[in-house]
Amino acid sequence: MIRVENLSKSFGDLSVLNNITEEIKEGERVVIIGPSGGGKSTFLRCLNLLEKPTSGRIWVEDEEITSKKCNINAVRCKMGMVFQHFNLFPHKTALGNLTLAPRHTGRMEKRKAEEFGMELLERVGLKDKAYSYPAQLSGGQKQRVAIARSLAMKPHIMLFDEPTSALDPEMVGEVLDVMRGLADEGMTMVVVTHEMSFARDVGSRILFMCDGIIAEQGVPGKFFTNPENPRTQQFLNSIIQT
């Protein structure tokens, strides 16, 4: 579904991703963990070209998005992205956040988009907040709206960049529940997170990223009980302690 070949990215002199090759298959739930600054966000953002790779090639559903001919807007319609800081549109209601893209990319007309938007809000448990503005929502509610906003485009793939890191602890659960629901429905997901229990329960594969490479990967069972790379062991220990 996503194929990455020899992906490298540097910001000026700073090399952030070093020659990464990886493939993500349909229905996989890939969880990326690793120390801060290791390149997780940059990797994720390269997958929908929010960052332009310095070199390497990326295919999404057999279309090369790093090719000049690619219409990236059309590809992004198929890939939802959820950000750490929600990035809801503050001048739109919750429902307005959901309907904006479907309407203005010509996918749905207003009524259809609103119907579908309400359906999604109900799914994330926020039907009663349809006409609230982001400023009136709690962090957990904002993130659930943000997830619904991505789903409004009926994506085939969802990318999550630390979706619960900016939340108060008591709100983490409600967001993870929504993500679990998505996983149960078979959504292809790539999730950067520090929530290890989520990684263990929901992830079908764990990637450990540090210093711009995927230093280790495996299925959750083996990865968490028996990591091979000393860096992984060190990282897992440090997380368990805190």
């Binding site: 929908n48 929010l50 807007n73 059309a74 992004r76 319609c77 890939m79 939802g80 992205m81 950000f83 800081h85 990035n87 809801l88 549109f89 503050p90 001048h91 904006l100 893209a101 203005h104 990319t105 943000a146 906003r149 991505s150 409004a152 485009m153």
Partner: peptide, 25 residues
């Protein structure tokens, strides 16, 4: 900057992101 990124990530063009999301704010 997250506003532009959110707009682009749901598939809006740079122009539509500017007029519908950035400009009103």
């Amino acid at each position: 900057k997250g506003q532009t990124e959110a707009g682009r990530s749901v598939g809006l063009s740079a122009f539509k992101t500017m007029t519908l999301i950035v400009f009103p704010q």
